[in-house]
Design a protein around this nucleic acid. Structure first.
Lengths: 246, 246
DNA sequence: CGGAAGCTTGAAGTGCGTCAATAAGCGTGG
DNA sequence: CCACGCTTATTGACGCACTTCAAGCTTCCG
């Protein structure tokens, strides 16, 4: 029982929410009670949901990376956010009827689906949790603002540096960083789409970062070589992540 | 009594929320009960709140334009959202402790402040309202995603076209558009900061739009000359505004 | 009447995009 | 087991959308 709980798909979520506020064992149990359905799997490059759909369930990402993206009629695409393990793909299903963006799997993903009633039941019992979940949504919104600042004002190098530091902190929060190294399972094309850059220029920017001794990247492993310098280049201020518990 | 209600500072807010769902007279009364404190005024170019602060009240903009912005240590600035009459400047004070962005007055503004307890009281009585307010927050988040798409992928002309159509719809929702004309009380500099463009290039893009017969703009009055064409240029899809009641 | 804020224009520079080609890795099927 | 296709990463040459710098103009207001 305890063993299954620690292995549960809700483990990263619990770790994440714990960065925002103190949660107790009962909260932990309540969260794991969300996982009743089967674990679903999808391959990389497949869509989890398309713009215009009206999904009836909330999805919790257990492993792999996904993204929110928007596209234009002529094919241009912008990734507007990453979903990492422990993230909900669209909690706003509750409020809004129709998706105004798509959700795509960037790698193979595993997730499970939660029925609204079931969700409601759990948060009714645990007022702490609804607060933590709202917090998480607000942070997601803050990340979007930070991306606007990046794409609007930062150079390619600064942008990429900022993204890497952000991913480092987010992955660390769900236990997916070991030291200053983490798995970066997405392609340079994805990084380009997230940063509003062409794949070619993104590639050159990556090489510049390596040359400057900021990072090492190979075999999908990103190692931050000089975190202090990287943060300086990115002008990184972690306040927008609102982790107020170490 | 009825007269003061229609003139109330909450009037634009009520109009706005009515675009999302049906609200009744009791909701209207509950909203206007939020306005107990005095109307506060600030001049253009002054800050309503600064990044790092922890405001204890929710502010409702009654007239004038404000914005959310983020800045970098070296002075670069990005406007990440506009506040129009009827918008709350940071409902998330409820959840997050510290502001991760600043709020600035772009024109002279009038607003009033709402204490959390007072706010709580009103929404406890009117479950409809909390739903409408959450809806509004989700739409704000959707607008941010749309801006990311704009700045990341659209050209200067497309970006500006998109912004104008968006502002048109938003202002129309609060009764601030007459036909295809509305007041655009902000400077070209502000437009540049919102679109991640230099003031010079923004000016040239505006002229191009005039030359193409898309808009007329003078004396702070923006007239959309050819809405259909403008929407086409912008590749505008209104779904992200989630106005599901005409 | 002076000074600040905003708009406009010209000239020159550059960060990034586009196009095009190559090469490496990898699963799949004949 | 090799051949094929597909995905991903890389590099060079060239072009352009946008930036920067600079100046002059207007309007407004104290």
């Amino acid at each position: 029982m305890m063993a299954t709980m620690t292995d549960a798909g809700t483990e990263p979520l619990f770790r994440l929410l714990s960065r925002y506020m103190a949660l107790d064992h009962a909260d932990r149990v309540a969260l794991s009670a969300l996982e009743t359905g089967p674990i679903r799997k999808l391959n990389a490059r497949s869509d989890i949901a398309r713009e215009g759909e009206n999904p009836s369930v909330v999805r919790l990402l257990v492993s792999g990376w996904a993204c929110r993206y928007k596209d234009l009629p002529d094919g241009r695409r912008q990734i507007v956010g990453f979903f990492l393990p422990g993230d909900f793909c669209d909690l706003n299903v509750y409020i809004l009827s129709e998706l105004d963006h798509s959700i795509g799997a960037l790698t193979g993903v595993r997730f499970f689906e939660i029925e609204p009633e079931q969700f409601q039941e759990v948060i009714d019992q645990r007022p702490n949790l609804i607060r933590a979940l709202l917090w998480h949504e607000m942070v997601a919104s803050g990340i979007q603002r930070q991306w606007l600042l990046s794409i609007g004002q930062r150079s390619a190098l600064e942008r990429l540096a900022h993204l890497f530091v952000e991913l480092y902190y987010r992955l660390q929060a769900v236990g997916l960083a070991t030291g200053l190294t983490f798995e970066l399972p997405i392609t340079q094309n994805h990084l380009a789409e997230a940063n509003g850059l062409s794949p070619v220029h993104l590639n050159r920017t990556l090489q510049e970062m390596r040359r400057e001794g900021l990072i090492e990247l190979s075999d999908r492993q990103l190692k931050i070589v000089d975190l202090k310098h990287l943060k300086k280049v990115a002008m990184f201020n972690s306040n927008y992540l609102h982790f107020n518990r170490t």
